Amino acid sequence: MKFIEYDAAKYLTDEETIAFYLTDALENGSEAEFLLALKNVAKARGMTQLAKDSGVPRESLYKTLSGESKPRFETITKIVNALGVNLAFTPRSPSI
């Protein structure tokens, strides 16, 4: 049996899908899972273009999204803004 590696980046083709994917990772995942989701989106958009759009050097993008460092909030917001999506906060649904 042959397995094909799943590449989430292939399916992240528009801002709506990207926003849903990142929101889900932020709400339901760990910090490492959110960074992996952000890395997948960056890969889908192209690291070189993202570096240019965000003003974050390409090498710094790889380091930030590697999961091996603690990225600064300022860096995350630059990346998110360059991807064409917003960070947003909504009230939680009341527990029943």
Rank of each mutant, 00 (worst) to 15 (best):
E68C: 10
R72Y: 13
R58T: 07
V41A: 01
E16L: 14
E5A: 12
G67D: 05
Y62H: 13
S54I: 04
T75S: 14
K10T: 10
E68A: 13
S30V: 06
A9N: 11
T75Y: 08
K2T: 14
N86V: 04
V56T: 02
K70L: 11
Y6G: 00
S60N: 06
S66K: 05
E15R: 15
S60R: 06
T64V: 14
F89M: 12
L35T: 03
L87E: 04
E59Q: 12
A8F: 04
D14Y: 06
L22A: 10
E74Y: 11
A44M: 05
A51H: 05
E33R: 07
A37V: 01
S66I: 11
L83C: 10
A51K: 05
A32P: 00
E5V: 15
R58Y: 07
A32N: 04
A9H: 12
A42C: 06
A44I: 05
T64G: 00
A88I: 07
K63M: 04
S54E: 03
S95I: 15
E59N: 10
K10H: 11
K2A: 15
R45G: 00
V56H: 03
I4M: 11
T75H: 07
K2I: 13
V41L: 00
F20R: 11
T75A: 13
M47K: 04
R92D: 08
D7A: 13
E15I: 12
S69M: 08
A51Q: 05
A82L: 08
L22Y: 08
A8E: 12
L12A: 02
S69F: 04
N40K: 04
G46A: 02
T90W: 02
E31T: 09
P57M: 01
E59D: 09
G46R: 03
I96Q: 11
K52E: 07
V41R: 01
F73Y: 12
G55H: 09
F34L: 11
T75D: 11
N81S: 14
K63V: 01
L12N: 01
